[in-house]
Each structure stands twice: as C-alpha cells, then as structure tokens.
C-alpha cells in the first residue's frame, strides 16, 4: 500500500472515530449527566427526558454507534483495498 493512501485511510478512520465518540459523549455524559436537570423538564411519554437518556436512550445509541462504525469501516477497507 502507498504511503499516501495509508495516511488517507488512517485519517478517515480517525475522523469517523472522533465523530462517533463525540456522539457517544454527548448522549451519555452531556444529555444523561451534565444537562439531566434541564432536560428532565421535557417529557417523553412518562419519562423525564434526561432520565430517559441516562437509563435507556444512551444505551440504544451506543449499540447503533458500533454497527455504524462497522459499516463505515467495511466500506473504507474495501475502498483502500485493505480488507481481508
């Protein structure tokens, strides 16, 4: 593999990671912990929203994040021809 291609591959991978981890931190720490009190004034059915993020929503998002990363990386591996 070319040095440049390798660099691009890695840079794209790191970009994906940064974006996904930002969402990871946002739903768990920001929505679930730091902003839980203001968000609790909003209701989602019977759930105060902040409470819902802390005990339910963040976990759903976590699962999605991993599968999204899997799909993105499978494509990226193919594009740069580094897949197994």
């Amino acid at each position: 593999m070319q040095q440049d291609a390798m660099k691009n591959y890695w840079r794209t991978n790191v970009t994906y990671m940064i974006i996904l981890l930002t969402i990871w931190a946002l739903v768990s720490y920001v929505f679930g912990i730091f902003l839980v009190e203001p968000l609790n004034t909003i209701k989602l059915g019977g759930f105060p929203l902040g409470f819902w993020f802390a005990q339910q929503g963040a976990i759903y998002v976590f699962v999605c994040l991993i599968f999204i990363y899997y799909v993105l990386m499978s494509r990226l591996d193919k594009k740069y021809d580094v897949h197994e």
């Binding site: 990671m17 996904l20 981890l21 768990s28 912990i33 802390a54 005990q55 963040a58 976990i59 991993i66």
Partner: peptide
C-alpha cells in the same frame, strides 16, 4: 441497586455498556 438508587443507577447502566463503544472503536 437501581431500584434503591433511582436516577443514580445510571452509573452502572452507562458505565457497563459505554465501554464497548471504546472497545469497538479504539
């Protein structure tokens, strides 16, 4: 534990699931 802690039980719920995102990505 959660039923006695209420909201604060989220430390276990978040803590014991969120690590898998780190594992999968990093």
């Amino acid at each position: 534990l959660i039923s006695f802690m209420g909201y604060t039980g989220c430390i276990y719920l978040l803590g014991w699931t969120g690590g898998y995102v780190l594992l999968a990505l990093l």
